[in-house]
Amino acid sequence: MYSEPIFLQPVFQEKIWGGNKLKTVYHYDIPSEQTGEAWVISAHPNGPSVIENGPLKGQTLAEAWESHGELFNKSADNNEAYPLLIKILDANDDLSVQVHPDDAFAREVEGVPYGKTECWYVLDANPDSELILGHHAETKQDLEQMMADGEWDELLRRVKVEPGDFIYVPSGTIHAIGAGIVILETQQSSDTTYRVYDYDRTDADGNQRELHLEKAAAVTNVPHRIPELNQEEAVSGDLTMTKLVENEYFGVSQWVLNGRVEQTMEADFLQVSVIKGDAVLAVDGKRFEIKKGTHFILPHGIEKYELSGEAEFVVSWV
């Protein structure tokens, strides 16, 4: 039985809106000063994480999912791709306004296994930072007309955010992260994006990025509705756990540790991102130092584990 956490190397994605906070704040060795994303727990073919420790060191998470399904309590007849993807995004500039399809549309139109429902935990935000979440159109016809006419100020719904905020973004929700915001994103393992508006930006050759207005209009939820989140807090030892969201795709909690706690594994496996402080993780007599910017999986088969220190985590499960 596998008796230690699976630590993962982040995979970096350069973006025209990216910056350098992944280096200055998280001390990652980023490829450039326009690094927008760190895919920190990923089995997606566009950026699979590599395992850093243990018997599977050097394998990708995708390879482990395929050849060692027991680590995730995966049934032998489960041919689905690894279901989740965790990222840190550094928005030095505004991201494009976009929308993602649901599973049915993604499979039928794009031939990929998953659509994209996601959620964001705001790690950092400049004063008065805002993002786009939803729209003001009442009908599909209104939506398509306002998009065609470029009435973006009237169409798009803007929301101010600050560190510690949590944003839930179901598939079909028009959205965009604004400049000056750093988020940890938990999402279905999908890279399918329909770009709605990109502020008429051009690249070094004067070309604008492609828009996908027809597909975007087809998948956008109209009218926009704000989902109700039943967020619950629980305390175990010196650990306070706040469940942020739980749906058919994933559950996400924020954990705050001030001292020591022993936990029993209840999920098939846990994905853990350390977002503040440092701590020691003890599993089966082995101790592992973890700190801000560390990401790991507690695989199936670990029955109990201990955390000690002063730290905050975002934890997710299937």
Rank of each mutant, 00 (worst) to 15 (best):
Q9K: 15
I16V: 14
I16M: 14
I16F: 15
W17E: 14
N20C: 04
L22V: 06
K23R: 15
T24S: 15
H27Y: 01
H27E: 12
E33G: 01
T35D: 03
G36M: 12
G36N: 05
V40L: 10
N46L: 09
E52L: 15
L56F: 15
K57P: 00
Q59I: 00
L61F: 09
A62L: 06
E63F: 13
A64D: 02
N73L: 14
D77Q: 12
E80N: 15
L85Q: 06
I86K: 04
I88Q: 05
D93H: 05
D93G: 03
L95E: 13
D103T: 03
D103G: 04
R107W: 01
G111L: 02
G111N: 02
C119L: 01
Y121L: 02
S129E: 13
E130R: 09
L133G: 00
L133I: 14
G134V: 08
A137T: 03
E138T: 07
K140P: 06
K140M: 11
L143H: 05
M147E: 13
A148I: 00
G150D: 11
W152D: 13
E154K: 13
L156G: 05
R158N: 05
R158P: 03
V159F: 12
E162N: 05
V169F: 11
V169D: 03
P170G: 07
S171G: 01
I174C: 11
H175N: 05
G178S: 10
G180D: 14
Q188R: 06
Q188T: 11
S189N: 12
T192E: 05
T192C: 13
Y194L: 14
V196K: 13
Y197E: 13
D198N: 14
A204F: 12
G206D: 03
N207I: 01
L213T: 06
A217Q: 05
P223F: 10
P227M: 06
L229G: 04
Q231I: 05
Q231F: 04
E233Y: 00
S236Y: 07
L239K: 04
L239F: 04
T240F: 00
T242P: 01
E246M: 08
S253A: 12
L257Y: 10
N258C: 02
R260G: 03
V261L: 07
T264M: 08
M265N: 08
M265K: 07
D268M: 12
F269I: 00
L270H: 12
I275E: 06
G277A: 09
G285N: 10
K286D: 06
K286R: 14
K286A: 10
R287A: 12
G293S: 06
P299I: 06
H300D: 12
L307P: 02
A311D: 08
F313G: 00
S316D: 11
